[in-house]
């Protein structure tokens, strides 16, 4: 497990990251969200050791992280970068060797990755002759070449078309299935919602919320939607104790349960009054939680 413990970073008078703590759990995808300039990139750079923390520490498998651990991580920096004039395959082999693979191992890995990314035909082309989407694929391949023990990806989905987003998502799922902890930042909240098991929400350099996505959404307030038969009225729900009506529209009501168990009373009453067409828990969308949390 990758643990960030009380990490802070100060640039002159500016505290870019303040006492940040969160976990990135193996076999789970962790989404890193927050507005621009809230310290996501700073945190990822500190995890990767490219930037020194001014406080706190990063831990790997229960101990302080070492350079050797980090050498086995896969990293995709915010500012993309590979050698523009080098051929795709040569480039990947170089990065594989840098991460300690032998030349033949690196070549084998690079070829299979390019195959998986549908770039086999471009493997002998110079990077700068590829489209931006394809360059991004090579970038992720460079991060995966050494079968990393953890992945830290800064905005891996930015600038990708919908098809490329799907193939990137599939790659990340494969890595998670391998039991690798994956941390990625993104502004595309619906994408994070779709992909992530865990969330870390950063605001102004502080961790505003962290944990399993399900728990966060649940804790934001458990809501139920009640829809009754045509012509029937749901106005009565406002009288039930432990329930706040968030929205009402004829035969449908959106309720927040402030007192656990109140939802059972609502259901029983509704069934007693006539046909119930729907009674279901509603989890608030991530965007709502996000807005709530960063407020």
């Amino acid at each position: 497990m990758l643990e960030v413990r009380g990490v802070g970073r100060r640039f002159g008078d500016v505290l870019a990251l303040d006492d940040a703590s969160f976990d990135v759990v193996p076999g789970r995808m962790t989404g890193f969200v927050g507005a621009n300039g809230t310290g996501k990139t700073t945190a990822m750079r500190i995890i990767m050791g490219v930037l020194a923390a001014t406080a706190g520490e990063v831990r790997w498998e229960g101990r302080r992280i070492t350079r050797e651990d980090r050498q086995r991580f896969g990293y995709m920096p915010e500012e993309r970068g590979l050698y523009p004039k080098q051929k795709v395959l040569d480039q990947l082999v170089f990065f594989g060797q840098l991460h300690g693979l032998s030349r033949s191992e690196a070549t084998g890995r690079a070829e299979s990755l390019l195959d998986r990314l549908g770039l086999t035909e471009r493997s002998k082309d110079r990077l700068d002759t590829l489209s931006l989407g394809n360059q991004q694929r090579v970038q992720i391949a460079a991060a995966l070449i050494h079968q990393p023990i953890a992945l830290v990806l800064d905005e891996p989905f930015s600038g990708l078309d919908p098809i490329a987003v799907d193939s990137m998502a599939a790659i990340l799922r494969d890595e998670v299935a391998r039991g690798v902890p994956v941390l990625f930042s993104s502004h595309q909240l619906e994408l994070v919602e779709r992909l992530c098991d865990d969330l870390v929400i950063l605001t102004r350099g502080r961790v505003a919320a962290a944990g399993p996505a399900e728990d966060l959404r649940r804790s934001a307030g458990l809501m139920y939607r009640l829809t009754v038969g045509h012509g029937a009225d749901v106005a009565w729900v406002g009288q039930v104790a432990g329930v706040v009506v968030k929205d009402m529209d004829g035969d449908t009501a959106l309720l927040e349960v402030t007192h656990p168990g109140a939802e059972q009373e609502i259901l029983a009453t509704a069934v007693g009054k006539g046909p119930v067409r729907e009674f279901a828990p509603v989890l608030p969308p991530l965007s709502e939680i996000f807005r709530e949390v960063i407020r």
């Binding site: 990767m48 920096p77 500012e79 970068g81």
Partner: peptide, 14 residues
Amino acid sequence: EKQSRVVEILAAAV
């Protein structure tokens, strides 16, 4: 390497 930003990957790796 600085201009193409590859230096960040290199610095993370070695």
